[in-house]
C-alpha cells in the first residue's frame, strides 16, 4: 500500500488528517513497527487506532492498561475452574501424565487481547491504550511481543504470530516510558488541532449542524484551549458533543447565555467554570469576537 492509497482509505473512513499524520502512519505500516502516540488527553490518540482498523478493514483488539495489569489479564490465563472440574471428572479414567498434558492445552487457555491479536488468522489492529498507566514490569513484558511478534508461555512454549498486527500504543505521559520500549516503536506526538482542522472535523462528523455555529464552536474551543488558566482543556470529542448539544437544543448562535447553559459539555471542573465566568465578565462573549459583536448587549 502506498501513501496515496492510505490517504484514500482514511478519506473513506471520514477521518480528517494532515500530511504529517499520513506520513507517520505510512512509515509505521511500511516498516511493520508499533506506533507509539503521545499527546495530551483528548487529542485523538485512540481514535487513530480505530480509524486505522476501519481504513485497513481489520478488527480492532483493545487492551486498556491500568496499574497492576499483568500477563494473566493481557496475554493469557488458564481456566482454573475448568481444569479443576476436568481433574475431578477424569481422575479415574486417565493416567496422571495424560491428564496433566490435557490440562495445558488450548481447551483450557483463556486468550486475552495480546494473544488474541497474534493468534488471529486475519491481521488485526492492536490498541494498547494508556501504556503509561501500566507498571514498568508490564512494559518489559511487552518488549518480546513488539520486537519479535511472539510470546512465550511456559506450559506451551513460544507462540509465533500467525498474522502481524498493526500495533498502536498511546500514552498521556503520566510517567516516562522506558527507552527499550521507545526504541522498538515509531513515534508520533499529537497536539490539539488548529482552528482550521477542528472546523473540518466538526463539518465531517456533524454535517447537519449549521456551518456558522460550527465555526463559532471551533473558535470558542480554540480560545478556551489557549487560556492558560483553564486546567482541563476541552478534547475533540467534547467539542463534537458540545456542537451536537447546541444543535439539539436548537441554538443557532453561540451567545454568552448559550455558552453558560451548555458549558458543562466542554468544561469539567469548578475552577474552569469560574475562569469562564470571569472571562465572560471581561469579554462578554466567548465566541472570541467571531460573532462580530452583534448579539452583545
Amino acid at each position: 500500500m502506498d501513501i496515496q492509497e492510505l490517504k484514500q482509505k482514511m478519506d473513506q473512513a471520514n477521518y480528517i488528517y494532515d500530511e504529517t499524520l499520513a506520513t507517520v502512519l505510512y512509515v509505521a505500516l511500511q516498516l511493520g513497527r508499533p506506533l507509539l502516540i503521545e499527546g495530551a488527553a483528548g487529542v485523538g490518540k485512540t481514535e487513530i487506532a480505530k480509524v486505522m482498523a476501519s481504513a485497513l478493514d481489520r478488527d480492532l483488539v483493545r487492551l486498556q492498561c491500568y496499574e497492576g495489569l499483568d500477563e494473566s489479564k493481557a496475554l493469557y490465563e488458564w481456566n482454573y475452574q475448568k481444569q479443576l472440574l476436568s481433574i475431578q471428572i477424569n481422575m479415574g479414567s486417565q493416567s496422571s501424565d495424560e491428564l496433566t498434558r490435557s490440562l495445558f492445552s488450548d481447551e483450557y487457555l483463556l486468550e486475552r487481547p495480546l494473544l488474541q491479536s497474534i493468534r488471529s488468522e486475519k491481521p488485526v489492529v492492536l490498541l494498547i491504550d494508556e501504556i503509561d498507566k501500566a507498571d514498568e514490569e508490564f512494559e518489559a513484558f511487552l518488549l518480546e511481543m513488539l520486537s519479535e511478534m511472539q510470546v512465550s508461555i511456559p506450559e506451551v512454549g513460544t507462540i509465533r504470530a500467525k498474522s502481524v498486527p498493526f500495533v498502536v500504543l498511546t500514552s498521556n505521559r503520566a510517567r516516562p516510558l522506558s527507552e527499550a520500549l521507545r526504541r522498538r516503536c515509531a513515534y508520533l506526538y499529537i497536539q490539539y488541532p488548529d482552528m482550521e482542522k477542528e472546523l473540518s472535523i466538526l463539518r465531517a462528523k456533524l454535517p447537519h449542524v449549521d456551518d456558522r455555529l460550527c465555526a463559532q464552536v471551533a473558535l470558542a474551543v480554540q480560545k478556551l484551549r489557549s487560556n492558560e488558566a483553564i486546567l482541563k482543556k476541552p478534547s475533540i470529542a467534547e467539542t463534537l458533543d458540545w456542537a451536537a448539544a447546541l444543535d439539539a437544543l436548537g441554538i443557532r448562535e453561540l451567545t454568552p447565555d448559550a455558552l453558560r447553559q451548555t458549558a458543562g459539555f466542554i468544561l469539567k471542573n469548578n475552577e474552569d467554570f469560574k475562569v469562564l465566568e470571569e472571562s465572560n465578565h471581561t469579554h462578554e462573549c466567548s465566541c472570541g469576537g467571531h460573532c462580530g459583536g452583534h448579539h452583545h448587549g
Binding site: 506520513t23 512509515v27 507509539l36 515509531a186
Partner: peptide, 19 residues
C-alpha cells in the same frame, strides 16, 4: 523535503524532546 523530514523523524526521534 517535508515528507522526508517527517518520515525520518518518525524513525529516529522517540520522544517530544528528541523531536
Amino acid at each position: 523535503r517535508q515528507q522526508v523530514k517527517t518520515a525520518l523523524r518518525t524513525i529516529y526521534a522517540k520522544s517530544r524532546d528528541q523531536q
